[in-house]
Write a protein that binds this DNA or RNA. Structure first.
Lengths: 318, 318
DNA sequence: TATATTTGTGTAACTGATTACGTAATTTAT
DNA sequence: ATAAATTACGTAATCAGTTACACAAATATA
């Protein structure tokens, strides 16, 4: 299919479907040629029953990977043709025990030849290919079980978006953004406190001039995230990670992560032995980000903020 | 899927279907996440239209490998959402020209990002596999186009059946079969002639004792085919292939082919320079077999048989 | 022991494709 | 110029699966 060369691999789904269709179409004809009176779609069910044991509908469904209504329907159809017998389980009234009838077993024998021939034909095709379809499917099944396609795509999206984000040093022109981004989340969850106004209205005096740093995350030259590294006057801690704020419209771009990384990098450059932070457990994504960055919870300390109910630290020496 | 390890490759169809399903299921979710308002099944249609040109329903169907009703339905759905516009062709009243609306074109741009991410995710999966699914599908598509699965299976069947056939030298116990098998086809198509009775009732005297040979094809020890190599008293020809007969219930076992091969082999051993035969053009499969064996039509010669209307020879020296 | 939860199954409705068929417009052949 | 064949396309029915839901039976829990 010329078409698929253009679209690229996004169309694996469509392409797989078409190959599947072609094969099942021929499968139907093959069953007809051998005149066994078995519908191709019955095959998986028939196959598991051919071992001889009685099985329940759900057990069959689980084994062949179909939904149970699908098996239920197939069994009904096969029953009509006299290939299977259904019987309620005596000890468990819910169970419908299914097994092959003598007529069904007869077909098992006839089917052997067909299976041999189909297998031979498929092996012959495989022998002519340099890429093994069977094994490739197996690998895909495994990998998709590890992580779904969806979450892989989301991951790819984040990675690509993150590449568009640049982290830069604070400049006076970002003053408004620094305040606005912080005010946005603070007033959403809590209310602005006096200490907030001090540092947000005067970042130069209260943060930079005292040996701190501020980073700004730009996306298309627009400041969508900010974060400060504040020098602390404390025997236990050198710096505090504070005023981390990311615009809600910039979700999924890893801005928080990139800002955190920049802050940690800067602290290391400054020879800090650790970083301290205060937050609130109501801010789940924030706490989860801090965890990912390596911060650990520590016992509470005095704080000027009402909203702080959790303290964390990152040890830079380990 | 454990199940597929048991069934062997007969179940490629089922297995492919399940992988396809898993992928398309996630595809649906992916479209949802990106919030583009495009249904996954619309993608192929959307894609070909995104080039910008107006296209007819059937042209799209052909390009993406769907049936035209499928495209017709998809276009109707997309039309309802205002993504495509339909317009009757002025010069050809049958044609329904379809193109993207401005709204549809807008989506094209939004879709770019999604395609990038999905492609990246799939490439990431591919990178982790040792067997390339994409290329494997391509190979299968190609090989199935060359020869359908059905005809490959039929071929495998013939080959397997042929392996069960053994060609043996004539023995007195096959005398009845030699006559019966020949009488069967002769009286079906023509009527038995005096010359027939001579050689069928007395094969030893009329064929073997005069330097000829008879081969019998056995299937499960049952004689289902016979053929004679008769010494000729003729300056042009050494031997005649005659009394070839295969039971109609033994179709698809290549018995004719195997007998023919044995006869030719024997003639070569005997140092014959050629083999002659007479037949009737009404016997299509026989003539086709003789052709496959290498016999060529030659001008008519005197013959004791009324039914002969074609003569052929095989040159063993070339 | 009474209640809640889980399990096994069947029915109904949906889905994304197909084939079959009908109709109208166009093209080809006589 | 007319008849026959082909082409474009829509509608209906079908197919092989699915999910959603209902209900009874069995099991777990308070």
């Amino acid at each position: 299919m010329e078409f698929f060369n253009k679209t690229g691999k996004v169309a694996v789904g469509s392409r797989l479907r078409m190959l599947t269709e072609k094969i099942t179409e021929d499968a139907a004809k093959i069953y007809e040629v051998y005149g066994i009176g078995l519908q191709p779609k019955w095959f998986p069910v028939f196959y598991v029953l051919s071992a001889g044991e009685e099985k329940t509908i759900t057990a069959i469904a689980k084994e062949i990977g179909h939904s149970h209504p699908s098996v239920s329907k197939i069994i009904a159809e096969m029953g009509k043709k006299g290939l299977v017998a259904e019987q309620k389980d005596k000890t468990d009234g819910r169970r419908n025990m299914v097994s092959l009838t003598p007529k069904g077993k007869e077909i098992t024998i006839k089917l052997q030849d067909q299976l041999l021939d189909v297998n031979a034909a498929i092996e012959a095709i495989s022998a002519q290919t340099t890429h093994d379809l069977w094994k490739a499917i197996e690998e895909w099944e495994y990998l998709l079980e590890q992580q779904s396609l969806l979450s892989r795509v989301v991951e790819a999206h984040k990675k690509r978006e993150a590449a568009k984000v640049t982290i830069v040093d604070y400049q006076p022109k970002y003053k408004a953004a620094f305040k606005a981004l912080n005010e946005e989340w603070i007033s959403t969850w809590f209310k602005m406190e006096a200490t907030d106004y001090k540092s947000l209205d005067h970042p130069e005096e209260y943060i930079l001039d005292r040996g701190g740093h501020i980073f700004v995350a730009l996306y298309n030259d627009e400041p969508l995230g900010v974060c400060a590294l504040v020098k602390m006057d404390d025997p236990d801690y050198d710096y505090e990670l504070a005023k981390m704020a990311v615009s809600p419209k910039a979700q999924g771009k890893s801005i928080g992560w990139l800002l955190g990384q920049a802050i940690i990098e800067k602290a290391k450059q400054l020879g800090a032995k650790n970083i301290y932070l205060e937050s609130n457990t109501i801010l789940k994504p924030a706490i989860s980000l801090y965890n990912k960055l390596g911060f650990k919870k520590v016992p509470g300390r005095p704080t000027p903020y009402e909203r702080a109910n959790i303290q964390m630290e990152l040890d830079l020496r380990s």
